[in-house]
């Protein structure tokens, strides 16, 4: 994507028989999932279904207890594969430095030359309407600005895939709109999007396909239109109607 000449693609991502156990509790099991080269996948499911966990396993923040998480570029080093991904968390974690320095730091970790960092970081801030706040300490920005800064930081890294873990759950409607626009901008550049949400309207607006998780398993994985119009399981149908299921 972008101007990076990538001869080999990171995607698709293939999860085979993935399970994750923690303190004798099985939190995810029998996950078989393929994420194709493009599009927006939305993870849905009640609290505790394993949405965040699944994303962390995909991103490599956690290792599966059993099974495999395999990228198309599996022959590459861990660091190389990591550099082609980015993740935006529910609560953005920003360093105790200026907005600009936060992005510069991420660029430094990605091996971008010192002389180029400032320009790239400013461009990313500008893209998300944060240029005037570049010198502001990141942690005194408003919640919406902080999330936009987290997106700008991801933008500067030009990832092939972007994970978003409930990126709008703590934001007001205007900030939600800004995040959704940002995600659309990423997708326009060809970035693969994987996000989780509790907002059914957002899921309808954004999903190309839906992975519906329930009790640590993939209960349904279908194109968005199929999932919302004619869910295959009574649990999914109940969830879409907004009923409590667990």
């Amino acid at each position: 994507m972008n101007d990076m000449a990538i001869s080999e693609r990171l995607l698709p991502l293939q999860l085979n028989d993935v399970s994750f156990r923690h303190r004798n509790q099985t939190l995810l099991q029998d996950i078989n999932l393929q994420l194709g080269v493009s599009g927006r996948t939305v993870l849905l499911g009640p609290n505790g279904a394993g949405k965040s966990l699944l994303m962390r396993l995909c991103h490599g923040l956690l290792d599966p207890t059993s099974g495999t998480v395999r990228w198309a570029l599996d022959n590459r080093s861990w660091a190389d594969i990591r550099q082609r991904q980015a993740m935006v968390f529910q609560r953005p974690v920003l360093l105790r430095r200026s907005a600009l320095a936060n992005i510069r730091h991420a660029l430094a970790l990605h091996g971008v030359k010192r002389s180029e960092r400032n320009t790239l970081a400013m461009a990313a801030l500008d893209r998300f309407g944060l240029a005037s706040l570049s010198a502001r300490p990141a942690r005194v920005l408003s919640g919406g600005e902080q999330q936009r800064l987290a997106l700008a930081r991801a933008w500067a890294l030009q990832p092939e895939i972007l994970f978003l873990d409930e990126p709008t759950s703590a934001l007001d409607p205007a900030a939600v709109k800004a995040v959704e626009d940002a995600v659309a901008a990423f997708q326009a550049l060809g970035t693969r999007i994987v996000m989780s949400t509790h907002d059914m309207g957002q899921a309808r607006r954004m999903a190309d396909d839906v992975v519906f998780l329930l009790r640590g398993r993939v209960h349904e994985h279908a194109p968005a239109s199929t999932f919302f119009e004619s869910p295959q399981t009574p649990e999914a149908a109940a969830f879409i109607r907004g009923e409590l299921i667990w």
């Binding site: 962390r56 991103h59 923040l61 980015a86 974690v93 970790l109 990605h110 890294l157």
Partner: peptide, 8 residues
């Protein structure tokens, strides 16, 4: 998590 995500 954030630092590991950034490849640190």
């Amino acid at each position: 998590e954030q630092l590991q995500s950034l490849g640190c």
